[in-house]
Simulated scan of single mutants.
Amino acid sequence: MNYKIQKFPNSRIASIDVCEVGKQKHHVTGLLEFDVTDSRKKIKGYNNTNNHKISFTAWLISVIGYTLKKYETSSAYLLGRNKLMIFEDINVSIIVEKDLKGTKVPIPLIIERANEVSMESITAQIAEAKNEEFTENDIILRKKTRQWEKVYYSLPGFLRRYFWKFILKHPKLAFKKMGNVAFTSIGMIGKVNGWFIPISVHPICFGVGSVLKKPTVIDDSIEIREILNMSVLMDHDVLDGAPMVRFICDLKENIEIGLNL
């Protein structure tokens, strides 16, 4: 019997705990398709005429931030039994894949004020994060592990998960630590025909898939269009069904018209 044992970095322990706690959230999941043909053309045209380039991912985060600001309860945290804590800013936690001694490790990066900062700034932040050196002593990008975080890794599982539950009961701490929106994209890695449903402890989470060419009905004619697959997890504790639908409709319109391009 041949096998090998491979140790994963400590940051992976936190990911496991987040998934375990996230499964207890009352998320409603939507599997969506967006026609991004025109938007991608606009991004290409924008990059051909501007020195500061923007990426499709950065533009998408910007559109999500802008739309969420109109539906601010979508990214609110539950406070106690019957109150919401609504933050003025939309801080988006995205996953950046880093190389650690030959192993690809997903590490979160917080895009602060995604509802206000420029698409160029978001593009630059993502690029900088990808190129930044990373060691196993990092739990959050650009921050070294603090002493209490080192203690966290040594705790048994039930205590580590209690730590995350404690954070969620204290929205100010949760917002400071991980923002109020999660964004993860497999489309940044490769093309997959389908949807994936992430697990998150955030009030709202976006699972962005690949952009694929598909036949679509446009004005009673069939055309080949570029379609983005996306899943959206929305916390039913802070948002009712009708506002969910209105938010999705506005998000669809903003994505498909190429908002701010």
Rank of each mutant, 00 (worst) to 15 (best):
residue 68 L to M: 13
residue 27 H to L: 09
residue 120 E to W: 05
residue 39 S to F: 04
residue 180 N to V: 11
residue 178 M to D: 08
residue 186 I to G: 03
residue 129 A to I: 12
residue 139 I to C: 10
residue 126 I to E: 12
residue 155 L to W: 05
residue 166 F to V: 12
residue 171 P to C: 06
residue 181 V to A: 02
residue 79 L to M: 07
residue 140 I to N: 10
residue 89 D to V: 01
residue 252 K to G: 02
residue 132 E to C: 11
residue 169 K to V: 06
residue 218 I to S: 01
residue 136 E to P: 03
residue 102 G to A: 13
residue 188 M to L: 14
residue 93 S to W: 04
residue 13 I to S: 05
residue 108 P to E: 12
residue 39 S to C: 11
residue 25 K to Y: 03
residue 243 P to G: 09
residue 165 K to R: 15
residue 130 K to A: 14
residue 155 L to K: 05
residue 175 F to E: 13
residue 64 I to W: 02
residue 188 M to H: 05
residue 227 I to V: 11
residue 158 F to D: 00
residue 72 E to L: 09
residue 42 K to H: 06
residue 182 A to P: 10
residue 160 R to K: 04
residue 245 V to N: 06
residue 203 P to R: 13
residue 73 T to M: 10
residue 22 G to V: 10
residue 205 C to W: 02
residue 240 D to F: 04
residue 90 I to V: 12
residue 12 R to E: 13
residue 121 S to V: 15
residue 166 F to D: 11
residue 154 S to R: 15
residue 193 N to R: 05
residue 137 N to W: 02
residue 237 D to G: 07
residue 251 L to K: 08
residue 196 F to V: 03
residue 245 V to H: 05
residue 200 S to R: 00
residue 39 S to E: 10
residue 138 D to A: 01
residue 135 T to S: 14
residue 166 F to P: 03
residue 129 A to V: 11
residue 9 P to I: 12
residue 172 K to L: 07
residue 97 E to Q: 06
residue 208 V to C: 00
residue 89 D to C: 02
residue 112 E to F: 01
